[in-house]
């Protein structure tokens, strides 16, 4: 069974962390992964940096620009991760934008992910229709779970379509914003979280965007299976480096 699906069966709320590969230092990718696992993080999204990250706010944009300046590339990431399964056993997801994947060659990219032991992919700019039309078979062949996003504006009908097309979890975007929104959660989000819970979807939901501390983590996971923290974690390693990851994780739960 794919590591993501196995993880979803655990009886606790899941904490997933996003970080940008090759940031703050190009060789920080593996030490970050090791520290996250050691501190009890359940799942990790490894960000493949892109020059034009449309869905990201300033924090992740800057970390991507910085990682690219450090010399980060797709080939370099695969090189860094080649022995990752010798030390890391939590689910690993690559999150990025579609263009770098296309340029690497989508067949080669997916095959390489399988070889390394990557479990899933999040490509926000590869939407459901294009995925199903052209790429689904390639991902499935390599046992890569393709994870779709839903937002507060996504209709129930489309959520059900996405649920049908998914086989791991649904990435529930908490608010209409890019990543790194800091306003906290209001009743609008609480209503949305409850609406989604009441749909009784076959896939569990993991909430992302706007989770930054223990309070927002608890609110987001009241109904959902887990939550993803990205920008707040990037800010932490920007200030404290990758040596103090335990400080960050221990404050979340």
């Amino acid at each position: 069974m794919n590591r993501i699906n196995k993880k979803m069966q655990e009886g606790k709320k899941l904490l997933s962390i996003y970080f940008t590969a090759g940031y703050p230092d190009i060789e920080d990718t593996m030490p970050t992964l090791e520290a996250l696992q050691e501190n009890g993080v359940d799942m990790v999204e490894i960000g493949l940096p892109f020059s034009d990250p449309l869905a990201d706010g300033p924090t992740i944009q800057e970390s991507s620009t910085h990682a690219l300046k450090n010399g980060m590339t797709t080939a370099k990431l695969f090189e860094q991760l080649k022995d990752v399964r010798k030390t890391i056993d939590i689910p690993l997801i690559i999150m990025g934008y579609f263009n770098p994947v296309l340029q690497y060659g989508i067949e080669d990219f997916c095959a390489k992910c399988k070889e390394i032991g990557i479990d899933g992919m999040i490509l926000p700019d590869l939407p459901l229709a294009e995925y199903e039309l052209h790429y689904k078979d390639i991902f499935e062949k390599n046992d890569l779970k393709f994870i779709f996003l839903i937002t507060p504006q996504t209709s129930d009908e489309r959520i059900r379509q996405i649920d049908q097309a998914s086989d791991s979890f649904i990435y529930m975007v908490s608010t209409a914003s890019t990543t790194g929104a800091t306003s906290g959660f209001s009743n609008v989000q609480r209503d949305y979280f409850e609406r989604i819970a009441s749909l009784n979807l076959k896939n569990p939901q993991i909430v992302g965007f706007g989770i930054k501390d223990s309070e927002t983590f608890i609110t987001a996971t009241k109904n959902a299976k887990g939550a993803i923290i990205g920008s707040a974690f990037i800010k932490h390693i920007t200030e404290h480096g990758v040596e103090k990851i335990d400080d960050f994780v221990s404050k979340i739960r």
Partner: peptide, 22 residues
């Protein structure tokens, strides 16, 4: 340019071999 994705459409675009838009 080479085939790629920019601003929501598949088209020809100037980019690095690694798929970063130039």
């Amino acid at each position: 340019g080479k085939e790629g994705i920019i601003h929501g459409s598949k088209t020809l675009l100037m980019q690095t071999p690694d798929g970063q838009i130039t």
